[in-house]
Structure formats: structure tokens, C-alpha cells
Nucleic acid binder design. Structure first.
Length: 427
RNA sequence: GCCGCGUUCGUCUAGUGGCCUAGGACAUCGGGCUUUCAUCCCGAAAAUCACGGGUUCGACUCCCGUACGCGGUACCA
């Protein structure tokens, strides 16, 4: 039976690097038809940050990494660790000093394990291993004792954790031996680096996973991206669902070098997920994301127009807010256009618009203004671009005619009029 | 300092001795499509496989050394 666990310390929000660790643990568990649980390592009372277990659980849920069973809090298991530390003292594997209990390390020989990541041997000379604290004077265990006791009791196998633990391997192996317990298999995941190649950590501005959520990233894209940071599935697929990841995942395929977190590819992948989503699904996600949107009922109409134009859910707002927000025209935007005599042309445009039979049809719209462009000897593209700016105040928008339809004919007309007034007032 | 781990295009990577004059993806640049922007399609540029020695008929792939990077060196995890 495969049992894995995600074991963060509650020193803050769930960090993006932690997402990958949790994901790999989840994949290994599910692939082996096993369980994936959560253990909160809150034995250092000084570093505990209020609300962080809640954030971790909430974010895991959002990502879809469902946890089996109730979360375990180490702080509630103090007696268990104490008891085990005492056993070690009785067996003369440990001793008390200054109110703490130290483990007596073996100084001869070597200690090694075969790491599941890359299937490589990692070896240490025992002579380099000093005695270490297993139970602090405040009665709480250190990581080393807590890890060994809990993962043995929880029957965790394999133990998957960050590479920062590699140096502690001899401590853990010796502890398992002293207890007479079977050693689990270990997998140490390479540490994710920031663009400056330093460890991607909280202090280096690495964002919590919840921040990516706020930025409009999709959970499935985050999962997919994090999975590929250091792992390539045998099939070579780039876009794969959680269940595809489960069937393809294997720790021995995980790269051993430290990868650099590059948000550009995450953004591409997020856009990829948005484009592959059905309109209905995207609408639903936008509704959830844009809680206070002023025109929620119109989102569904706009979705087909912007689906290929946004990479993140948050991109929806700047691209479409002209449809329901009041406009502020900017003379600089008009100056960018390739058309002179904008006032004159705009009033001609308005005239045509007023005379166009309602409801406006795309065909007529196009024919009318291509004709007008010919008449005035300007390029059709420039003509439409002027209309675009008049109606939206922007040079970049969803398709013009469709946008006008959503805006409504009256409102579109009003916008053109306002644009004209604006131009007259500035000249 | 000491201990451990690593090093293929800017980034994520493929590659397990001959298929590699090193493949893919993102990003970049150019072109096509297009009423803008995107999407989509086509193409280009981009890695002397960190460096130096071996081993071998043959090395990106195996061994050793050096450099560099990362991690650890706490009664933090």
C-alpha cells in the first residue's frame, strides 16, 4: 500500500514550490491506489503563523489535490514523541543534556540510501555526523524525531520531500535503525529556483499559491505547469490532465537538477487551458473570479469574443470594461491613428450609422464603411480602427462589430457622438 | 571552511556509448491569415552538451579532476 503525505510547516501561506511537492506526493499515491494525507508540522511554536493551516488546506482544495483523512497536527502529538525519545534514552541511543534529548550518532562506517529521484545513491561518512537534538527542552520534538516517528506510525512510503533534507538523511536512517523500524524509501525533490537562480522562497518574493489564484491563473494550469517543472512524461505530452499525470508519473523520471521557475510559460499554458475550455465553463470560471463584476449577466455573451485573447482570467477586465464602464477618451490614442481630419470623418460615420437599418447587420456594417473608406480615399482598416477607438476608447478590443452589438446600437451611437465632442473640445 | 547534490539553446527539457552535423515546448524574430489585438499556420535564430583529462574503434552519454551553482552545517522546518 502506497501512502504519501504532504507535510508543510505552518509558517505562512502555501508556497508555490510546496504545490509541486504536494502534487508529486498526490500523483504517487493515486498511481499506487494509495492515500495522500496532510500533516502540519507545527512543532516550532515561535514560527507558527496564524491562519496558515487554513490557507494550506483551502489552496490544496482549490487545486483539486484532495486529501485523504483528517489533517494531523504534530503539536497534538507531543506525548508520542516524548515517549519515543525516552525509549531511545533507555536503549542508550540517546541522552539528556541541558533539558534536551540528544541522539548519539554512530561514528564509524557510512550511511547511504538510494534516492527514488533519479535512482541514485547518496552516501555519507558517519564520521561527519554529530550528535543532534531530537527532543527540545520545551518538550517538542525536532523535525528529525517527528519525521521518523510519524512517518513510521503513518506507514508513509515513499517519503517525498524537498532536497534540503538530503543532508539529514544519516540522522533519519540512524533513528530508524535505533527504533528497529524498517526504513522507508526516500525521494528528494530538487529545489525550485527563482529567475535569479536563488532559492525560490518567501523571502525572495516567491508568491504564495493563493496569489496566483488572485492573478487569474487556473488550478489545472498551475498543476500542469508545476508537474512539468522537472518532469517530462514518457508520452512527451505538454498539456495533460491530473488523471493523465497520475498514469504517466514516475519519480525515477524526475530531473535531478534544480529548475528555474519561469512564469512566462505558465502564462502560455494558462491561455492554452482557457482556449481549450468550453464557453460555458469559461463563463462559469469568470463568474467565480469576478465576484463584483458590474454586468455579470453579459459575461456569457462576451466570452466567445475574448476566449482567444486572454491568458489569465484577470485579463478579461481591461479588454472588456469599455462595454459597461464609462469611457475616458485620451487624445493620444486618437493621435496614433493613421487618419487625418478625424472630426470630419467621424461625423460622416455617425451619419451613416444613424441611417443604417436596425438591427444592424455585420454585412451592411462592413459594406457601408468599406464604401465610405473608398469614397474618402482612406484604407478600410484605418476606417474601422477609428470607429473602434470612438466606440471603445481603445485600439485593442474584441471584434468591432460584435462588441458594438453587445454595447447596443444606441449606446454605440452615443459613444461616437461623445468621441466627436471630445475631439472638437481638444482641437 | 567542511559535508552533500547538481551542470544540454534565455527558460522547461529529450537524450541511459554509435539513430545527435543534439530533438521538442515556451519566449524572441520574420512571414501568412486578419477591420485592431489575439488565435491559427509557416519559417528563422538560439546549446563548441560547464571546462580539462582519461576509458573506448566511438562519449552529451562511463570514470577522475577543476570551476561554477544549489542545499546543509540550529533546542527551524
Amino acid at each position: 500500500m502506497i501512502k504519501t503525505r504532504f507535510a508543510p510547516s505552518p509558517t505562512g501561506a502555501l508556497h508555490i514550490g510546496g504545490v509541486r511537492t504536494a502534487l508529486y506526493e498526490y500523483l504517487v499515491a493515486k498511481k499506487g491506489n494509495g492515500t495522500f494525507s496532510l500533516r502540519i508540522e507545527d512543532t516550532d511554536r515561535a514560527r507558527i503563523v496564524e491562519g496558515s493551516p487554513e490557507d494550506i488546506i483551502e489552496t490544496l482544495n482549490w487545486l483539486g489535490l484532495e486529501v485523504d483523512g483528517e489533517p494531523i497536527f504534530q503539536s497534538k502529538r507531543a506525548d508520542i514523541y516524548k515517549e519515543h525519545a525516552k525509549k531511545l534514552v533507555m536503549g542508550e541511543f540517546a541522552y539528556e543534556q541541558d533539558g534536551a534529548i540528544y541522539f548519539k550518532t554512530k561514528k564509524e562506517g557510512k550511511t547511504s540510501i538510494v534516492d527514488l529521484v533519479g535512482n541514485r545513491k547518496i552516501e555519507f561518512d558517519n564520521a561527519t555526523q554529530d550528535d543532534f537534538v531530537i527532543l527540545k527542552s520545551d518538550g517538542f520534538p525536532t523535525y528529525h524525531l517527528a519525521h521518523v516517528v510519524d512517518d513510521h506510525l503513518m506507514e508513509t512510503n515513499p517519503v517525498i520531500r524537498g532536497a534540503e533534507w538530503i543532508s539529514s538523511i544519516p540522522k533519519h536512517v540512524m533513528l530508524f535503525e535505533a527504533f528497529g523500524w524498517e526504513l522507508p524509501q526516500y525521494a528528494h525533490l530538487p529545489i525550485i529556483l527563482g529567475p535569479d537562480k536563488s532559492k525560490l522562497s518567501k523571502r525572495h518574493g516567491a508568491k504564495p499559491a493563493s496569489e496566483f489564484r488572485k492573478d487569474g491563473f487556473l488550478p489545472e494550469a498551475i498543476l500542469n505547469f508545476m508537474a512539468l517543472l522537472g518532469w517530462t512524461p514518457p508520452s512527451g505530452k505538454e498539456i495533460l490532465s491530473l488523471s493523465e499525470m497520475i498514469s504517466e508519473f514516475d519519480l525515477s523520471d524526475v530531473n535531478i537538477a534544480n529548475p528555474i521557475f519561469d512564469i512566462t510559460k505558465l502564462e502560455w499554458m494558462n491561455g492554452e487551458y482557457i482556449r481549450r475550455m468550453s464557453d460555458g465553463e469559461l463563463t462559469k470560471r469568470l463568474h467565480e473570479f469576478l465576484v463584483d463584476h458590474p454586468a455579470k449577466e453579459k459575461i456569457a455573451l462576451v466570452v466567445p469574443l475574448i476566449k482567444e485573447r486572454i491568458k489569465k482570467l484577470s485579463d478579461f477586465v481591461p479588454l472588456t470594461d469599455f462595454l459597461w464602464e464609462k469611457l475616458e477618451y485620451d487624445i493620444e490614442v486618437f493621435k496614433k491613428l493613421n487618419i487625418k481630419d478625424q472630426n470630419e470623418i467621424l461625423s460622416k460615420i455617425m451619419e451613416k450609422l444613424e441611417n443604417m437599418e436596425k438591427p444592424w447587420k455585420n454585412k451592411d456594417f462592413e459594406k457601408t464603411f468599406r464604401g465610405l473608406a473608398d469614397e474618402l480615399d482612406i484604407k478600410a482598416g484605418d476606417m474601422f480602427q477609428l470607429i473602434r477607438v470612438a466606440v471603445s476608447g481603445q485600439t485593442v478590443t474584441p471584434p468591432l462589430f460584435e462588441s458594438i452589438q453587445i454595447l447596443g446600437e444606441d449606446k454605440a451611437l452615443k459613444r461616437v457622438k461623445e468621441a466627436l465632442e471630445f475631439l472638437e473640445s481638444t482641437s
